[in-house]
Design a protein around this nucleic acid. Structure first.
Lengths: 227, 227
DNA sequence: CCAGATCCGATACACTCGTATTGAAATAAG
DNA sequence: CTTATTTCAATACGAGTGTATCGGATCTGG
């Protein structure tokens, strides 16, 4: 058994290069040769790792998706008990990739999303990542609701907050979906330059805050039409 | 003055072809030759209309943006007095391009958004369209708030709805931005296949409804942190 | 040290792309 | 009818693409 190389790490390195280039020129604009150069390997090596270009792009999508999910999971387990509400806010901000540090990742993600509308294999991978993110968000929502919003909203008089009885009416999955979509939309608008990232963060914050403000919807007779 | 051609209509016809193709293969995948074929003109004719490919794409973006804006404006003036709240909901749905009839337009839009993150001239055009849409939405929000939500929410007892005094605290521009972002995010998630269009519509509806449920935020002392 | 498998860098190939060129058809004015 | 001018179809061209091929370098097991 002769020469052996660590394909896994090489694949990751290549995926990294793909991201850098996709950030600059869009995923269609990514060239095998450029990837090879950027990853400091030869074109032949890239071809050995991925039989085809699409295979490479799919791997890169998974890579980015895993990174985002992982970062969020880390954030989630980092401060689990502190305040589920603010944790949710942070998580959403994280997903929105608004921190300029992750601007590149955001562009890559958006580019892949766009191409996924055309390429089914890419779309399949994206769905996996989205499902994971949505689940995480839904869990956060549930947790935040159950724990109660004791320390998150700074309304120290719980007089007109009848416990979490009302908040329980939130559908965590639904809210997670909404949050995810809002985050994605904000991200793209920031990238286009239609929004400043501060504006986007404000909007996201306002949306999350609204989740805890609302819970007196328990007033009956209204749910009928809303659902 | 010899042979003269109506360039404007030809340009529109070409833009239409661009949309069809961009829907199928993404905007990068659009080829001058394919456009020419699809538009039933020769490659030379396309080249006479647009000096370069990017010029053509930019025109196509404007074309789509104008169409969406126009459709929304029509919807706006079609039933102006009926109910600002439901008008808002309809407008948002319209923007989200969720009706399957406009699925193609949605794909085109998303594709262009993605590429705009890389191409500044495209981004500039998109910003114009977004600004127009946001303004329209903001106007709708304002209108809905001022008119009062008398007939929109079917809570016929205005006992605990202290007029629109609280609703006035809504920042229409902010809400318009949020709505626009949410609509875009939902659109892309539907295109990816992560959401069904009914789910997306539900989420959008819930978001709009929430705008009218909330208005007792007038309780002071909270804006400090929230903003 | 040798055999044999594995890896990969270089090169080749077939293609497609955007764009430039060009010469003929079409048309309006003289 | 000429003639000047515009329009465009056909073609050419060079750059750049993904992928296939292949010969030598590299390393392991004996």
């Amino acid at each position: 058994m002769p020469k052996q190389v660590d394909y896994e790490s090489r694949r990751r390195r290549i995926a990294e290069a793909v991201c850098v280039l996709a950030d600059a020129h869009g995923p269609e604009g990514v060239t095998m040769r450029d990837v090879a150069t950027r990853a400091e390997v030869s074109l032949g090596a890239v071809q050995r790792c991925f039989r085809t270009k699409e295979e490479m792009l799919v791997f890169a999508v998974d890579h980015v998706g895993a990174r985002v999910t992982e970062r969020m999971r880390a954030r989630l387990s980092g401060a689990p008990e502190r305040s589920a509400a603010t944790a949710l806010e942070h998580a959403a901000t994280e997903i929105a990739l608004l921190r300029s540090a992750h601007r590149a990742e955001a562009r890559v993600w958006l580019a892949f999303v766009a191409q996924a509308a055309v390429s089914e294999p890419l779309a399949a991978r994206l769905r996996i990542s989205y499902a994971a993110l949505q689940d995480l968000l839904a869990r956060l929502v549930t947790e935040a609701v159950e724990v109660g919003d004791a320390d998150a909203p700074d309304a120290p008089d719980p007089s007109d907050e009848p416990g979490d009885g009302g908040a329980a009416r939130l559908d965590p999955q639904r809210e997670a979906r909404a949050l995810l979509a809002l985050a994605d939309g904000l991200t793209s608008h920031v990238l286009i330059g239609h929004l400043a990232s501060e504006e986007a963060e404000d909007i996201l914050r306002a949306h999350v805050v609204r989740l805890w403000e609302r819970p007196r919807t328990s007033r009956p007779g209204q749910a009928a039409r809303a659902e």
